[in-house]
Amino acid sequence: MLDRLFLEHPRTVGETYPQHMAASLGVASRLFVASLKCVVHAVVPGWCKTSGSDAIVKLHSEIAPRRYDQPTF
């Protein structure tokens, strides 16, 4: 069970557990920064006009080619 939860998915994308953790945390940090910019944009619409959508487009172009058909649970 531990293998399925912690090691199986990283193997399917050609990474070790620490490599996959680092990649996932990198994506999370980029999304966090983008979300903060969206909050700024909500308060002051003239600032960070495309920051959120730019981050989504860039992350999608990086992540989509690596996707595999598999459940996420």
Rank of each mutant, 00 (worst) to 15 (best):
M1Q: 08
L2T: 05
L2Q: 03
D3V: 12
R4S: 11
L5D: 08
L5S: 06
L7S: 11
L7M: 14
E8M: 14
E8C: 09
E8P: 00
H9D: 13
H9N: 10
P10C: 10
P10Q: 03
P10T: 05
P10W: 02
R11W: 08
R11S: 10
R11P: 03
T12P: 03
T12W: 02
V13S: 03
V13N: 00
E15H: 03
T16E: 13
T16I: 04
Y17T: 12
Y17F: 14
P18S: 06
P18H: 00
Q19E: 15
H20N: 10
H20L: 10
M21W: 06
M21H: 00
A22Y: 05
A22Q: 09
A22S: 12
A22F: 13
A22I: 15
S24Y: 00
L25V: 11
L25E: 11
G26Q: 02
V27M: 07
A28Q: 05
A28M: 12
A28E: 08
S29N: 09
R30Y: 03
R30F: 03
L31M: 11
F32M: 13
V33T: 06
A34N: 02
A34M: 08
S35A: 15
K37L: 05
K37A: 03
K37G: 02
V39T: 07
V39E: 03
V40M: 02
H41I: 11
A42S: 14
A42V: 07
V44S: 07
P45I: 06
G46S: 10
G46D: 07
W47I: 12
W47L: 14
C48Q: 01
K49E: 15
K49I: 05
K49V: 04
T50F: 01
T50D: 15
S51D: 15
S51K: 00
G52L: 01
S53C: 10
S53A: 09
D54K: 01
D54M: 05
D54L: 06
D54A: 11
A55R: 01
V57C: 08
V57K: 10
V57T: 13
V57L: 14
K58D: 12
K58Q: 11
K58C: 07
H60G: 04
H60C: 13
H60Q: 13
S61Q: 12
S61P: 03
I63V: 10
A64S: 14
A64L: 15
P65T: 07
P65A: 07
R66V: 15
R66M: 15
R67K: 09
Y68A: 14
P71G: 09
P71N: 07
P71E: 13
T72N: 11
T72D: 04
T72K: 05
F73T: 03
F73K: 03
